[in-house]
Structures are given as structure tokens and as C-alpha cells.
Design a protein around this nucleic acid. Structure first.
Length: 529
RNA sequence: GGUCCCAUCGUCUAACGGUUAGGACACCAGAUUCUCAUUCUGGUAAUACGGGUUCGAUUCCCGUUGGGACUGCCA
């Protein structure tokens, strides 16, 4: 067993004596008292900007796994990179949880006995753990500067070696106390590195809940545990400490973490802690416009993939979730057609079904989910959602709709009475309003390209009675057509274009009924000129 | 370069080692007493390649190719 550091020196390195022993932390955060099979999951984003559709995918899976097993879903903010942190990002994440109905049971802004849930507030916990590692010789202070590390990397590249601080390249891994003190007296602040005992010639078998067992070379890198600039942990160390003491049972995360899995197993093994069940989800991809190749949907390059963007366009949140759910667990779609009671919230997902290959984000399919979802909504719900969207995202529409909420409702009701024949041309709230914009006089634009048959329009006005039933209304059109030697459809098209400005619309009779006598006649007269 | 992951219609996927390789989206065609949408019917379309193992391979093994991730005191 390697010689560790003295308590005094550890205190000096960390700036303070550890607040707790690991034993005390075990008592402070005892194993959870949950039923068998209950999963404790977490969504653990870093607050570096906007929420991304891939993040929402993660959030959904974690939420459902916890929820369907009567477990606990936590929201933990990984704000250990102070340089990249963006103000307001936490609020954005919370806002996403609220809007999509994926509220955590524990986490920032929620209560919970396993917090704090902001990593920046857990420094004492990390330091307490790392102090024992230093005392036991499993970690050591490292005074390498970034210039020195850069030089090491260059040399390794030149020599065709793997880059990193390991073995003989880890020049500080066996510093004696006197040398450490000398550095300290020099005013240098060390990072704390793992004293890795892994041997890359050996294999370590790591289990992934969906992929099975994966063999990796053991990790021999002395990775940083605690960063020198702010004393905060790196992802790896924070993951170890947090997911142990938060008693996470299932870590669902993106496949970008797969390469560090052997390290994480090593860390848990070193501590004598049981590792969680890991599941590494595949990426959500797109075809890159420039290279023509498939690649991960990225925060930086694909602003259209931001959750905020979906919200601004007014995609129904449940439809987005259903699309995502079907990717995470492809049986959902089929089960839903078989059993109409199946929905997003009651359909259980299976870890083993989570796909391992990257999926192209398919807007067409999303649109289909959305059409179906909107088609199945009640008219009150639909109207309410659209009004709610306009209030939050569109001052223009808000103003227009404001005094016409009942009118809007009757507009949206057109061809919605027969459940088998509901229109499915509404996709997003924004697009829905644009679809029906001609109903509003402020927005109606008369069609000046269309060559109206004015006699037909005049004839229609003279016989027009808003109280006519549909058959009578149609018969009048037929009569006009016969009288002028036109086709029925031609007369209908003349009326349609005059009244709506468009050649494609829903049922004309319903439109006129909703618009009312005056508006219809006005527009017809306008077309006549 | 090194390590690892992945590979069924255009897309998302289903198929105890034995199926005419199924479904959904998209697309095309036809029907549905006014256009559009809806609805209904039909259709085009896939196991990347090469070796094994096996009576039999989409399925198991190996290799090749292709795609992806990681290789930071970022997560």
C-alpha cells in the first residue's frame, strides 16, 4: 500500500480540514428506503447555454424510468466549469422541465435529502472524499502547469504514444512531502490527481444496461479529480461522489461517456462502492448540410435543435415527447395503435429496448406525431393551447386573437365534428394560426391574380342566406352553375377564392358559417370590385 | 494514430437460428356526390461486403468497409 499524505499537509493542500469523513457522509446520505426495482435516476446537465433536443431525450428517459418504477428522478446541475457557465441556463432547464411536464422529484428548486443538487455547492463533500484518498495514497497533488502538460502531449504525439498524464509522464505522482511543501511555499496551487493503478495491458469488463458487457483496456491515466483553479471536481470525480451519495441506481447518459466507463468502474471499485447500472444512449443525428454525412445534432451548430426553438414554433410538447419516446422505446407507436388507452405517460419503457445506433432526427415523423396529437385534442384544449402560445410567444397574434377567442374556437372547430374525419393539417400552434389567418380581417389578403367570374359571385350574393342548411346552400350553387353554363366546382372555387383568398381550404360551407353573413358578403363584393 | 460503439426499406424500427423479412413515417397510384386536408385501398422499397459455425444465418463468430464517439484542470 502506498504511503499517503499527513493530515496537516492535506489541510494545507485543500485549504481546510475535511468537514466529514466518508463514514459520516454514508450516514448523512443513507441508502434510500425504496421498494425493490425502484430506480433512482438523474438528469445532470451543465448550464452552458440552451436546452437541446438531445437533452430533452435524456430527460424523458430518466423521468420515465424513475416514474414508472415509483423511484426518484433528480435534477442535478453540473456547474463545475465556471468558465463555460451561462447565466439563466438553470432557469431554462427548469422551464423545460415545467413546460414538458418532466418535473424532477428532487433537485434544484425541489426539496430532497440528498442535496445540494448544485455541484458548485458540494465542494465540502468532494473535498472530504478526496482528503481520504490523499491520506490513503490513492490521489496526489499535481503541480504540472498547462505549458508543461502541453509539452508532454506534444512529445507523446511525436512518439506515437497515447496522450495523457500517466505512468512516467505523471511527473508528480511520487512527490515526497518536502517537495510538495516546496511547491506550496512557492505559491503553486495543485490539482488533485488519481494515482491510477490500472494496467492498460489488462482488460476490464464493464456492463452497460443495454449493450451488455464491454471489454476495455484498464485506465492508467492519472485523471484530475479536483481542479486547481477553483477547487471544484471534474466530471468523473463529481459523478463518482454524487451518484454514490445521491444513491443513484441508474445512470442514463449519452454515448459520449462510453469511453470513460472503465475509469468510472475503476473509481467505484477503488472506493469499494457498488457502481450504478449504466446505460449509454445513442445520439440524435442529422445529415450535415456541408459534408452530406450523418453527425450528432449539436448545440453549437444546430440552433434549430434547441428546445426553445420548438417552443417558439409552438410544437405541442406532448407530441415532441411522443416522437422521442418512440425512439427510446420503439414499441410505443405500435402499442398505441393497438391500445388507444396507451399514452406517453403510462407506457413503460424498457432499458433493454433503448436503441444503440444513432437515429436521424426525422422532422416528417415529428410532424406526423403532432398532427395526430392535435387531431385527438378536444376543441377547448386546442383553443386554449393556441391562445396560451400566442400570449407567451407572439405579441402580434396575441393582439389579433385577444377579442376573438370565441371566433378562433369556431374557426378551429371546422371539420372536427366527426372523429374519423378530423382535419390533420395543424402541426404547430404558430403554423395553425397561419393556416387560418384569412379568417381575420386584419390579415386577409384578397386574391388579385384570380380571374373571377363576377356574374357567379353576384348571383351568389343575391341568393345568399346565412341560415341555409348545407344542402340548400349547395343547391343554390348548382343552380348558378347551371344558369351560367359552369361546372359546380368552378362556382365553388370562385366563391372560395373570393372569400378566403386561397384555392385550397377546408369545407367552404363551414367557413362561411363561421365567418358570418357580413364578412362573406363584404369579401365577395371586394372581389367583384 | 490509439481505444470504444454502431450497421435491416429513403427514415425510425420488428423478427426463441427456420417468416413470402413485418409495421410506421415519407413517397407513388386509385377511391371517397366542390378544392385542400382527412379516411379507405393498393404499390415501390431493406438484411453493407467477404469468410466461417450450422441441416438451416437478418440473427452467433472473425475480417473488411462505412458511420459515430472519445482521446482537456469541458461536461
Amino acid at each position: 500500500m502506498r504511503q499517503g499524505l499527513s493530515a496537516d499537509l492535506i489541510k494545507r493542500i485543500l485549504g481546510a480540514s475535511p468537514k466529514w469523513t466518508i463514514m459520516q457522509l454514508e450516514e448523512k446520505f443513507p441508502p434510500r428506503n425504496l421498494a425493490d426495482g425502484a430506480m433512482v435516476t438523474r438528469f445532470a446537465p451543465s448550464p452552458t447555454g440552451f436546452m437541446h433536443i438531445g437533452g430533452l431525450y435524456q430527460m424523458l428517459i430518466n423521468y420515465k424510468l424513475a416514474n414508472q418504477s415509483n423511484g426518484v428522478f433528480m435534477l442535478r446541475i453540473e456547474d463545475t466549469d465556471t468558465k463555460r457557465e451561462v447565466t439563466g441556463a438553470v432557469e431554462l432547464i427548469l422551464d423545460t422541465a415545467v413546460k414538458f411536464g418532466l418535473m424532477p422529484n428532487e433537485g434544484v428548486s425541489e426539496t430532497g435529502n440528498y442535496g445540494p443538487y448544485l455541484q458548485s455547492q458540494r465542494k465540502d463533500i468532494y473535498h472530504s472524499v478526496v482528503a481520504e484518498l490523499l491520506a490513503g495514497g490513492a490521489a496526489y497533488p499535481c503541480f504540472l502547469t498547462s505549458d508543461e502538460m502541453e509539452e508532454i502531449r506534444e512529445n507523446q504525439k511525436l512518439a506515437g504514444l497515447p496522450t495523457g498524464i500517466y505512468g512516467e509522464w505523471a511527473r508528480n505522482r511520487n512527490l515526497g512531502e518536502e517537495e510538495i511543501i516546496k511547491h506550496l511555499n512557492n505559491g503553486e496551487i495543485p490539482s488533485i490527481r488519481l494515482y491510477s493503478t490500472g494496467n492498460p495491458d489488462q482488460k476490464i469488463f464493464c456492463k452497460d444496461g443495454a449493450r451488455g458487457s464491454i471489454a476495455f483496456p484498464e485506465n492508467n491515466e492519472d485523471i484530475v479529480l479536483i481542479k486547481s483553479n477553483d477547487g471544484l471536481p471534474t466530471y468523473h470525480f463529481a459523478h463518482l461522489v454524487d451518484d454514490h451519495f445521491m444513491r443513484t441506481t441508474n445512470v442514463i447518459r449519452g454515448e459520449e461517456w462510453l469511453p470513460s466507463l472503465p475509469l468510472h468502474f475503476q473509481l467505484f471499485r477503488m472506493m469499494g462502492w457498488a457502481p450504478p447500472v449504466y446505460v449509454h444512449t445513442s445520439t440524435l443525428d442529422k445529415i450535415d448540410a456541408e459534408t452530406g454525412k450523418q453527425r450528432k445534432l449539436s448545440k453549437r451548430h444546430d440552433p434549430e435543435a434547441s428546445v426553445a426553438n420548438f417552443l417558439e414554433y409552438g410544437w405541442p410538447t406532448d407530441a415532441v415527447l411522443e416522437y422521442l419516446l418512440n425512439i427510446a422505446s420503439s414499441g410505443y407507436e405500435e402499442e398505441k395503435t393497438k391500445n388507444p388507452n396507451t399514452n406517453l405517460w403510462n407506457y413503460p419503457i424498457k432499458i433493454k429496448k433503448i436503441p444503440m445506433s444513432g437515429a436521424l432526427f426525422d422532422m416528417k415523423k415529428l410532424e406526423w406525431w403532432s398532427r395526430e396529437f392535435i387531431g385527438a385534442m378536444s376543441i377547448d384544449d386546442l383553443t386554449g393551447k393556441i391562445i396560451g402560445w400566442a400570449k407567451e410567444y407572439s405579441p402580434e397574434w396575441k393582439k389579433i386573437i385577444h377579442s376573438h377567442e370565441d371566433y378562433l374556437k369556431s374557426i378551429l372547430s371546422i371539420e372536427r365534428d366527426n372523429p374519423k374525419r378530423i382535419r390533420k393539417d395543424f402541426v404547430t400552434w404558430k403554423q395553425t394560426l397561419e393556416e387560418v389567418l384569412y379568417f381575420f380581417d386584419e390579415l386577409f389578403i384578397s386574391n388579385t391574380d384570380f380571374d373571377f367570374n363576377k356574374s357567379a359571385l353576384i348571383a351568389f350574393i343575391s341568393g345568399f342566406d346565412i341560415s341555409d342548411g348545407k344542402d340548400i346552400w349547395w343547391n343554390k350553387i348548382v343552380e348558378i352553375a347551371n344558369g351560367l353554363g359552369l361546372k359546380n366546382g368552378d362556382v365553388a372555387m370562385n366563391l372560395r377564392v373570393a372569400v378566403t383568398g386561397r384555392t385550397n381550404t377546408p369545407d367552404l360551407y363551414s367557413i362561411m358559417q363561421v365567418m358570418g353573413h357580413d364578412r362573406v358578403v363584404n369579401r365577395l363584393q371586394k372581389a367583384i370590385g
